[in-house]
Simulated scan of single mutants.
Amino acid sequence: MSNLAQRLITAFIAIPIVFFLLWFSDYSRIGLMCFMAGVGAWEWAGMACKMYKGPDTRYLSFASSLALTLAWALSKGGYFGMPAVPYVVGMTFLVIFAIYIGVAYAKVEIDHLFPWLVMQLGAPLYVGLWGGMNVLMMGNGQGFEHCYPFILVMTGVWLCDTVAYFFGKFAAGKGPFGRHPFAPSISPKKTWEGSVAGSIATVAWVAYWAKCSAALGCFNVEIDLAKAIGLGVLVTVAGQVGDLLMSALKRWSGTKDSGNLFVGHGGVLDRCDSFYLAAPALYLLMDFFQKLA
């Protein structure tokens, strides 16, 4: 079976499951986000372990990123019928940071201590502390209306990746389209043509649905056309930067796929690389728009 066929089959199975979990309740939403963060951090730690001598921290990374994502949910309040818990994110990270410092001092040789610590801490910092903010775009209750901003950025990065992949694979280099490498030292197969095509599709998608969703009251801020386009540009730029960041991590560690959770697609960091940078960025920009109002 070809890789493309595997990718399509996996997508047809995984996408309905993801949307069901997002629709069902805050328990299923937060559970999905915590699980994905934990697996993503596990994959990061596995790649980092290849480069520096030290203990296997995949279990610690899994637990740390899961805990930080859950802490963001608790800090917001409303989930699980609980009020907001103050300082829970900062206190959780301090505990995690102390544990990593202790492991580094006890188990890592001095020649590898600092690079090992920086790269291993990158998993909970990026996936949990930064990426975990995606739960702040969700609410409690059943229905998609409780997570429209989240779905918007998720579908936006999926669309950008899909259009860029198919355009770069089947159109770039043919007819009027050239084939110019986008980042040859990081991801040789990516092209400027695919990037531009994916960006145009994503900006149009995000701008249209952000404006429509805001009109229906699904956002906590009014969004005019200029703001909607700004959100679209942010999603496509941050998404592609996140994609390149994970590609650089894989190339640096000599890893083809970060994992094998999704057959034909790879692991969480292969599928959610764009999302983990774009979702928190979108949340912060929307929060900025809200404070301007």
Rank of each mutant, 00 (worst) to 15 (best):
T191R: 07
T236V: 15
G173D: 12
D56K: 10
F182A: 05
I13Q: 06
L284F: 15
L245R: 00
K211A: 08
Q290V: 11
C272Q: 02
I30H: 08
I96W: 05
I96M: 03
G132W: 06
K53G: 07
A201C: 13
Y148L: 04
A279D: 07
D273N: 03
K50P: 01
L125T: 00
F19C: 13
A164G: 11
F182T: 10
M133L: 01
L269A: 00
W209Y: 15
W158T: 06
Y100P: 00
S274A: 12
I151W: 09
S65V: 05
G54K: 08
M137K: 07
L292M: 12
A171W: 14
T255F: 04
D56M: 11
L66C: 10
W44L: 00
K107M: 10
L60P: 02
N260E: 14
L282N: 01
L66A: 14
H112I: 02
S253M: 09
A207C: 04
S28A: 15
G38I: 13
Y27P: 05
P55I: 14
A238Q: 03
M51R: 15
A5D: 01
F35I: 14
S195M: 13
Y52I: 01
L8F: 14
G143A: 02
G232Q: 09
P280L: 01
F93I: 02
P184R: 10
A37C: 11
W192Y: 12
I13P: 04
L277T: 12
P176R: 05
A106I: 11
V221S: 12
A164N: 07
Q240E: 11
L216F: 15
G38P: 10
I110Y: 14
L277K: 00
V118D: 00
R58Y: 13
